[in-house]
């Protein structure tokens, strides 16, 4: 079974067009080159697609790490 952080990593890898293995466990917004502004756009839309609803402003602003992504994926 894939845990939440692994799912988050997979989604971030898809959005950032990079290998899952290249993503550090402690990755944070602004500190990993492939996670750029367009990757962030794809990431948020990817989360929304995965959970089947639009994120509200309070949820979207919290996306800064794998843990944050995992929390939204539920």
């Amino acid at each position: 079974m894939i845990n939440g952080c692994e799912q988050a990593k997979g989604l971030l890898a898809e959005a950032a067009h990079c290998e899952v293995a290249s993503i550090p466990d402690d990755v944070r917004i602004g500190q990993f080159a492939p996670w750029d502004s367009l990757a962030h756009l794809r990431l948020v839309l990817g989360i929304e697609q995965r959970i089947g609803r639009t994120l509200d402003a309070d949820e979207a602003i919290r996306i800064e790490s794998l843990k944050d992504i995992a929390a939204l994926l539920g």
Partner: peptide, 14 residues
């Protein structure tokens, strides 16, 4: 709030 690239830029810049 849905201008995600701009939000990224602000956060990434501190």
């Amino acid at each position: 709030s849905r201008n995600f690239p701009a939000v990224f830029n602000y956060k990434a810049q501190g």
